[in-house]
Design a protein around this nucleic acid. Structure first.
Lengths: 200, 200
DNA sequence: CGAAAAATGGACCAGCAAGTCCAATCCGAT
DNA sequence: ATCGGATTGGACTTGCTGGTCCATTTTTCG
């Protein structure tokens, strides 16, 4: 596995990972089998185990990483420049749209049930995703603070944490019920909480 | 299955369901087998399939219902009488404590990955749980409103939805990271959002 | 070119777990 | 007591799925 990977090999490996991601999206983690992946990607078992010697878990981990990267990528460029109320609003819409489109499957969430949350690699992926996500939010809030749009006294990290929790929960509920009301409410309230108190 | 259940039969059925719940908590849904349940409860396969003719899914569904009921029960009596700021504070502490103790497993969440979210029964259970939960919150907010502790103009259902989303997300993050910061932040901010704007 | 390394095909294996079946036993009602 | 239905025991079947193995082809590189 070291560095011995030709261009062809890398291509095959990528094909397997991406194909596996598709299969997991379609069939769900619980019922997706290696043979599904093989037939979808037109590869053989020996190839799969050649590139993922540790088997299914290793493949799932690779897919999890792929999906994790996608989560933040799908929120760009909005998430990267939260420096005006308008930008926050556009980001909000992007988040709602992304998860409404995603439908009723949760590529990342399901994966950790299968792999086990305490696997060294698995936990690291989700922790790192959450960290980066929250950092982006905090950066945005600080930018607003410096521009005087958000009260200076506001606890940035706490606000970012609460907002992130609201999103997570909103998505969870969207997955369970098919309705995005909670996600919208959480986003709106989270953002509203940043605004300075309007003195009548 | 109809009404033909003697006292002994009912006892056995209950023993199986509760034993299954224990096994799922210990081993996790993914790796729990029917044989685990049997050896834990000292029953035989024919008994299990006698009381759950539709097999494993039916058993999991029964366990899911059990766990769903437990979620709200564990928040009582606080959740039922959210009529003062002090009561809200006690409820908050109860929620945090409950989920900190629960550790890193999510009996309900994991179950739906296994059963499939679109199973007729599965979705109904979680939807009903969320509905009741949110209703309790809304009732509490309305009580506070009538007592004049919460601004009359506040959109109760929206606030309850956002708070519920925050809790869900906080718990999700607690499960993933082991830290309860987000849950606490979401609860605090959600409750703080109810308070009237303090005019300096 | 030619050898070594990488990539590939696909048959095969092993184990496990859900579900079936039938015989044996218990229990309540007549 | 006894008859019928409820309950129980546990061996057996069946299908699937992750994983192994080795022969073959392709690529790389001196």
């Amino acid at each position: 596995m070291g560095g011995a990977l030709t261009a062809k090999g890398r291509a095959t490996r990528d094909r397997i990972v991406h194909g596996a991601a598709e299969v997991l999206r379609d069939r769900g983690v619980a019922s997706a089998t290696l043979d599904d992946v093989l037939s979808r990607t037109g590869t053989s078992k020996s190839q799969l185990f050649h590139y993922f010697p540790e088997g299914k878990d290793q493949l799932l981990l690779a897919v999890a990483q792929l999906e994790a990267d996608q989560v933040l990528a799908d929120q760009q460029p909005h998430l990267g420049c939260l420096d005006s109320w308008d930008a926050w609003s556009r980001w909000r819409d992007a988040v709602v749209e992304r998860y409404e489109e995603q439908g009723d499957h949760c590529p990342l969430g399901s994966m950790f049930l299968q792999i086990g949350r305490d696997t060294p690699g698995a936990r690291a992926i989700v922790v790192e995703l959450l960290r980066q996500w929250q950092e982006h939010l905090a950066t945005g809030i600080r930018a607003m603070q410096e521009a005087g749009h958000v009260p200076a006294g506001l606890d940035v990290d706490r606000a970012a944490a609460a907002l992130l929790a609201g999103i997570q929960g909103g998505v969870t509920i969207l997955l369970s019920t098919g309705r995005s009301d909670h996600l919208r409410a959480a986003l709106d309230q989270g953002i509203a909480g940043l605004r300075p108190i309007s003195v009548p």
